[in-house]
Amino acid sequence: MTDVSNHLFETIDRQHRGESAATRRQLIKGTSAALAGAGILGLATGVSPASAAVKTDPDNSVETILAVAATAEVLATIVNTLGPEKLGNRLDKTTLRNIRAAAQQEKNHYEVLTSAGVGGKPVTTSIHVPDEVFSSPEALLKTLVVGDQVFVNAYLLGLTVFARQGTLSGSRFARYAGEIMAVESVHRALALQSLGQLGNDRVYAKFAQREAVAGLPTTGAPGFYKIMDAVTVLESAGFGFGKAGSKPGQMYTYADVSARTPSDPDVNTLMPS
């Protein structure tokens, strides 16, 4: 048992010192079961299933995670730029501005990830986007909710892998992943809010847990521990990376679309720390 879990159980024992020893043991036993069921005890004891799964998958390398992240930012830049272009007069003013600002932010993420200081190399900069994504404001917003959750999951996975490097560059990449993940969480929250749902619905950013939001293609699906599963989720939604996707759509290139990605004067903190 680790120092963390020892401290936790000693605290329970101390707070209930007026109870019998049998009662205190039962409280500790019940707390252990509750924490284990929530996946928290594994974090305290260092035997989290998620941690083990992340560590053992051979594709969870720094290079592969950066490649998937850069490619995902290509997709996000394209969708967030095109969405307002295609649906502008059907989106309310606040939603329109938020999505346009998100396009600018995703483009910035791509530029940082592919900079010489980070070294990410996208798998492709050509993305097949299903036509249904732009069929209605609701379709676009649900796509953003699902996509941004995939990105949150991927950056949390990346943060774990980068931090394990035990190097200065690893800690820097972990911090970048955390900073980008925070912004992707905001994008998800704003899209949910524009759908008329609670935007700040997470106590913790979702990693391994099942999707609790109703009415999404991913409702009830668990998070992923393998970075290539991010690609699988997006492909199952009809996106194609450098090739046609599984649903009718069109191929877009980053160079063409990003050339007209808007900039909002109120967007700030333009570089990671």
Rank of each mutant, 00 (worst) to 15 (best):
N89F: 09
S115H: 02
G120T: 04
Q105P: 12
T125V: 04
A255R: 05
V152F: 03
Q26T: 11
G166E: 01
R90C: 08
G158L: 01
A163F: 06
V74M: 01
G215M: 05
G166K: 00
E10L: 06
T219P: 05
A177Q: 00
G215V: 00
T71H: 07
K121N: 09
F239G: 04
N200P: 14
G158N: 01
V152H: 02
G249L: 01
Q250L: 11
R210C: 10
K93C: 10
Y176S: 02
M228S: 10
A36Q: 15
L157R: 06
G245L: 03
H7P: 03
A34K: 12
L190H: 13
N108P: 10
V213Q: 11
G238Y: 05
G83A: 04
P272A: 04
D266P: 04
R97L: 14
T167D: 05
Q250Y: 07
R175W: 10
H16C: 09
R210L: 14
P130I: 00
S48E: 04
A101D: 15
G147V: 10
G242N: 07
E138N: 11
V62T: 11
S136P: 07
A221D: 12
V203G: 13
S273Q: 11
K55C: 08
A154F: 05
N89Q: 13
V183G: 00
V146S: 09
A182F: 08
L216P: 06
V150H: 01
I65P: 03
A255F: 00
T218A: 08
R202I: 13
T64R: 15
E10S: 07
V129C: 04
G18W: 13
A214L: 13
K142E: 09
D92T: 03
K86Q: 13
L144D: 08
A103N: 10
L75G: 01
T253L: 07
Q209F: 10
R17A: 14
L270P: 06
T124P: 04
A76C: 02
A76D: 09
V257Q: 00
F134I: 09
D92M: 05
Y225I: 08
E211G: 07
Q15G: 06
T81L: 04
V231P: 08
L8G: 02
F239D: 09
K243I: 06
V213K: 12
Q15H: 12
V54H: 12
T253G: 07
S51R: 09
V161C: 07
T56H: 12
G46T: 00
R188K: 15
D264A: 09
L66W: 01
Y110E: 00
F9L: 08
